[in-house]
Nucleic acid binder design. Structure first.
Lengths: 342, 342
DNA sequence: ATCATTTTCCAAAGCGCTTTGGATAATCTT
DNA sequence: AAGATTATCCAAAGCGCTTTGGAAAATGAT
């Protein structure tokens, strides 16, 4: 059942039927009612492809995910983000178009999305410190919202980020207050803006107390469980091991925990752990009281909000860039305690 | 730059340019070369919306994910699946359209996808035992592939599944061979087909040795870490606690581990653990030797293959349904050992 | 050289919708 | 009651592509 058939059936023109269905004012209420009822009973839904072509809008938002051998974009954190974003999209009749691309031609993928008109806008995931995607999208004129920020980027753009620096500064201060001095950092790749900022917060807290950053205690890599495990093993084996470790995500924190326990040490006593908790729905940091002391900010909420911001921008393209900086909350769980006496 | 502009520029008709670009035979090689080169230099890419309308194909595959308060579809396993599927799509020029819907109108969402022509086919995730989506999609005539199976479903359909029954039978046998008798099961929701089959494999192994299934030892719920933790605590507190626990995923297994260790028991000695390992990229079961003894099957590979099967089906709609049953591999890690002596 | 084929290209008709620019009918002024 | 407004509807022109049904040009057969 298409528009022509429906309008023939009703003895009306396609124009009128289309207008009735789309809520235009130049159609009598009685007619509108007749049309909507007929559409209902005959199960008419406008063809998306035709509608897209006519309106120039696709009602879909692109998410480009690079598939690289060395860095996994698609992970638990990502899936919670898209769950949130997807929820926001659904509420406004959008949906999400995910294209997986080889990371060598990620730029081309964005270009293609823009020139072929597949999407009305995109979300930029995992921005690097000086991310080239931002000027590119700016140039392409495709609306976008960055989840995170990109330092050194001069072009104006909309973003939503958690205050990673203050979160890690706060976590580090918390440990310092407990008397810890040897504090390890298990971070994500530091080309990524969020990881760089987290390291910076960590560094600032230490330096404020006159403690130098020990390169032996700071590690940056893909945030997997085995990475947390391996680096913790390495640090604990050293002559001057850390008494506390900060992990950039719950997942490597699980590895940290495994390494600590395997060594027969007790968490929160021999070694304290703080992690950044994205409040993943499938991997919650405990249900009642938190397992790990953590700085927490829901990535799902972030997804939801990024989606909203982007749709707003698409709907009103004249509006300027919007920024939101969220503070992470510090939740104290059982994984931290006073530094052990020497 | 659109087709008309490009053809005007070349002094050719749109027909010829279109044909040259799409590899049709009725165009001289020299002309084709001239056209492709012009397209290249002028950065011409056909408008997807127009192309879709003209061809009736969208080159995109739908994934419907119900958003429910009590059951999370979007999880780590899901994200690895779509990474695999997305990779397959990318290779053949498809991409993925994800729509998040309230679970109360999931059926309507599929109907809408079909009638509005948003996608060329869909992947059905997490089939229930008698899943109504299968007859629905069959009726709608929308190509689809089910990741998993749906028992009791009479309509023919394509699916790819791991042999959940044999995997859990094997895991249970492995523990029985080690002398375990009290074996706990931390399963997913048993309305879901895979969970039902897993339970069945577990039951069959026990019954083959004349051991009755103890309801105190079998639990089914959302497969989160806290669920694994809570149920393990509960079981370990009982008068006749299990000496081994089988978990339906690595994630609840982490909770199982936490509960066991928190009680001061040793994994692989006091309590053995086997889990189903989906070989998640972000949460691998160890790098070299596995952490948990596990039955393993890569959900990412499954995603890739489901995607391929679906695209094949879309390309040749006359082909009958295809089935693939994958056997999970048993990998022995450090989490299992002989049953402790009484 | 003539006719039949094949090769190469084109004009025009969709695909199913939205939207512009009227026309007609109904209502309001005076 | 005639002219001015307004409410209601319509025909037709896109949106940018593919594809059908020829036409013209080139090639082959006789």
């Amino acid at each position: 059942m298409n528009l022509r058939e429906l309008s023939d059936l009703l003895g009306l023109s396609q124009t009128t039927v289309s207008r009735a269905l789309n809520g235009y004012p130049e159609v009598k209420e009685a007619t509108r009612k007749r049309v909507t009822e007929a559409a209902e009973t005959h199960n008419y839904y406008p063809n998306t492809r035709a509608k897209s072509l006519a309106t120039g809008r696709t009602m879909s938002i692109g998410h480009v995910i690079p598939l690289s051998s060395q860095h996994e974009m698609v992970n638990c954190v990502f899936s919670d983000f898209i769950a949130g974003a997807g929820e926001a999209y659904a509420r406004q009749g959008y949906d999400m178009r995910v294209s997986v691309v080889d990371d060598s031609d990620e730029a081309k993928a964005y270009e293609r999305l823009a020139t072929t008109g597949k999407v009305d806008g995109v979300i930029v995931h995992g921005p690097l410190i000086d991310d080239e995607r931002i000027p590119l999208l700016d140039r392409l004129g495709l609306p976008f919202v960055v989840h995170g920020r990109s330092s050194n980027c001069t072009a104006p753009y909309s973003w939503l980020d958690v205050n990673n620096r203050s979160a890690f500064r706060r976590a580090t201060d918390f440990l310092l207050d407990l008397g810890h001095v040897r504090i390890g950092l298990v971070n994500g790749f530091e080309e990524m803006d969020f990881a760089m900022r987290r390291r910076d917060g960590y560094r600032a807290a230490l330096e404020a107390r006159g403690i130098a950053v020990d390169p032996m205690l700071t590690h940056a890599f893909e945030m997997t469980e085995p990475f947390g495990y391996a680096k913790t093993c390495e640090m604990l084996r050293s002559d001057d091991p850390p008494t506390a470790i900060i992990a950039s995500s719950l997942i490597p924190a699980l590895g940290v925990r495994r390494a600590v326990e395997e060594r027969g040490l007790t968490i929160g006593k021999d070694v304290s752990i703080i992690c950044f908790d994205d409040a993943l729905s499938y991997l919650p940091n405990g249900t009642g009281s938190p397992i790990f002391t953590a700085t927490r900010s829901s990535v799902r909420d972030a997804g939801r909000r990024c989606g909203e911001m982007l749709m707003d921008q698409i709907e009103d393209r004249t509006a300027g860039p919007v920024h939101e900086l969220w503070e992470a909350e510090l939740v104290v769980g059982g994984s931290t305690g006073p530094a052990p006496q020497r």
